[in-house]
Write a protein that binds this DNA or RNA. Sequence first.
DNA 1: GGCATTTAGTACATAAATGTACTATCTACA
DNA 2: TGTAGATAGTACATTTATGTACTAAATGCC
Lengths: 168, 168
Amino acid sequence: MIELMSSFHPTEQRLAITRRRHPAFPREPAVLVRLIKHIYKRVHDDANALLKPWGINHPEYNLLMMLYGTDGYTLNPSQLAEAAGEKSANITRLTNELCDKGLIERTASDEDRRKIALSLSKAGIAMIESFLPDICTLLERQASGLQPREMAQLEKLLKKFLDQLEQG
Amino acid sequence: MIELMSSFHPTEQRLAITRRRHPAFPREPAVLVRLIKHIYKRVHDDANALLKPWGINHPEYNLLMMLYGTDGYTLNPSQLAEAAGEKSANITRLTNELCDKGLIERTASDEDRRKIALSLSKAGIAMIESFLPDICTLLERQASGLQPREMAQLEKLLKKFLDQLEQG
DNA sequence: GGCATTTAGTACATAAATGTACTATCTACA
DNA sequence: TGTAGATAGTACATTTATGTACTAAATGCC
């Protein structure tokens, strides 16, 4: 019987050897973590490649999309850091670049003068709407190996996994 | 009825707004990609924190574990890049550091003199075996929100997802 | 009011990752 | 053979990410 080997097979092979050497090494959690890592890197690379013609990269795209997904197209740096999963020091650099490119705007807040409002500019919204069709195509292609039923299942399990991670 | 909100709720909220603005935006694939990203970052940070006392970081750990999971504890730089999902230029830097720390050794290959063999040193193996108990604990805790049945299911779905990603 | 503590944001130094271009070696085949 | 093209690895410049330390402003508490 012929079985098609996934590209992940070598990883499983290595896990088997690892467990031979250190039997307590937990196979399932390790497989999951390695799968997550491989998937993340691939998704990241795909997005970077797609976005290159627009002169932005994946992290910048993420920031733009966080604003695009917010009423008023506006967030504070700290909210943006939380939303995009970036460290706050990184937000400063990334938003500086987006400002330089004219895609977002900074405004000081009146209520709390420590705060800064980051808002999508017209140009930012226009750029998002220009690359979204390609992004949609990419996302659909990336997930096209899964049935809708499987996607829902995967979502449920990943959420459960993330919940556990976050409560330490 | 009270429902506990996961920390992922704001992300879903933003996706809903995004879809209001751009109805073609595919919810499920986008949710999956964002979940993967959040999980990856968290796993990465956790591992870095745990490994700090040993003076290595997550990518270095990954390289060591790839060698530990190989018969003979030896791989070429390109095999290591493939295994660990790092770009080859990065492997040079990381393996230089691991050499400097005395954890791995480089040997020239006889059969093909373009090739280099990277092998775990005694000290490297000893270090791995000293941190593995803590790593096992971490992995088990990270996955402790899932039943064995769910882990297997998650593994299956992630593999399917990765397969699709890799065939373009 | 005045002082300690917390919070928002950033600057700057450092570390980590990537792209590109290059050297050396190997392979194939005319 | 010998020469074109592929492959393994690295050097170096650049980009991206993180840690730490700092300023300014808000909050709480006496």
